[in-house]
């Protein structure tokens, strides 16, 4: 019921052992050369060039390949050739498991089909964002996965509203935030009314009523929900080649006038229409 990668799916379902998967990963680590290693193997650069570029990376936020081109060590066409060679020789985890004898080809095909079916529910749908937002595809996926998990985990019926840029976030009964770092620098915020907070608590605690629950527990269920959402977003982001780290969630109590967007950040608001009485929004603060 979550975003997974193939190796995890196989171990979680006891289709290959933990030890076999570790052995296959070790084989992948031996066979799948990093960009610098592949560049050296082609003879276009030396190990000393790579070390020089790594040192330069400490003061420049650039990928190794782009930096090697900028430093005049590689031409753009040489870099493209290296990247293509890296892709063409990549050993996938399924192939590695067949190589070590943990699976045969027929089992691999069968398990891959079942895995794709399991993960089909998390295939992202396009969501329109305002122009000029960095890493737009990542934020489209974030909103889409939030909608999917509201349906699957919380069972709440809703209609997504049009995404818009905002300067202030409206106040609400509870705002819960999680900071996202790595290849992105952003804050994920879920804003909920009191009624929605109770619906989330009922779904997370699997209880029919949460009337006697202390506020601490009710707030914790909303924090746990965004932890689940952002963890699954991080998994999807890694499939898109983006490293996304998540931090423990926090509760924000904004003033009645609302929450100001930090300077240097763009703010996107995704209204989640849940009925007349309740209010729910997803807000993303994205650093430029």
């Amino acid at each position: 019921m979550a975003v997974k990668f193939f190796g995890q799916y196989l171990v979680e379902n006891n289709l290959v052992s933990r030890d076999a998967l570790l052995k296959a990963i070790e084989l992948q680590e031996q066979k799948n050369l990093k960009l610098g290693e592949m560049a050296v193997s082609t003879g276009y650069v030396t190990q000393a060039d790579i070390e020089r570029a790594h040192n330069a990376q400490m003061s420049k936020d650039m990928r190794l390949g782009d930096l090697l081109v900028e430093m005049g060590i590689l031409t753009l066409s040489q870099l493209e050739e290296i990247v293509i060679r890296q892709k063409n020789t990549h050993l996938y985890i399924g192939e590695a498991l067949v190589s070590i004898g943990a699976l045969n080809s027929e089992q691999l095909r069968m398990h891959l089909d079942a895995f794709k079916q399991d993960q089909a529910q998390y295939v992202s749908e396009r969501i329109e964002l305002p122009a000029g937002i960095p890493d737009g595809l990542v934020w489209e996926m974030t909103a889409d996965l939030t909608y999917k998990l509201i349906t699957r985990v919380l069972g709440i019926q809703f209609r997504p509203g049009k995404c818009q840029s905002v300067a202030t976030v409206d106040s609400n009964f509870m705002l819960t935030a999680m900071d996202l770092s790595g290849d992105v620098d952003a804050r994920y915020i879920l804003s909920v009314s009191e009624g929605i907070q109770k619906e989330i608590a009922k779904a997370i605690l699997k209880e029919n009523s949460v009337d006697g629950e202390p506020l601490e527990v009710l707030e914790d269920t909303v924090m746990e929900f965004i932890n689940v959402v952002c963890g699954n977003v991080a998994a999807k982001a890694s499939q898109m080649g983006k490293i996304m780290n998540i931090n423990p969630p926090v509760v924000i109590h904004p003033p009645a006038s609302g929450l100001q967007v930090p300077s240097g950040s763009a703010a996107l608001c995704f209204p989640i229409h849940v009925g007349e009485k309740d209010k729910m929004e997803l807000i993303l603060f994205i650093k430029a």
Binding site: Q8, E12, V229, C230, A235, I246
Partner: peptide, 9 residues
């Protein structure tokens, strides 16, 4: 919730 991140797993 990070189980699906290959590196973490």
């Amino acid at each position: 919730s990070l189980g699906g991140v290959g590196d973490k797993f």
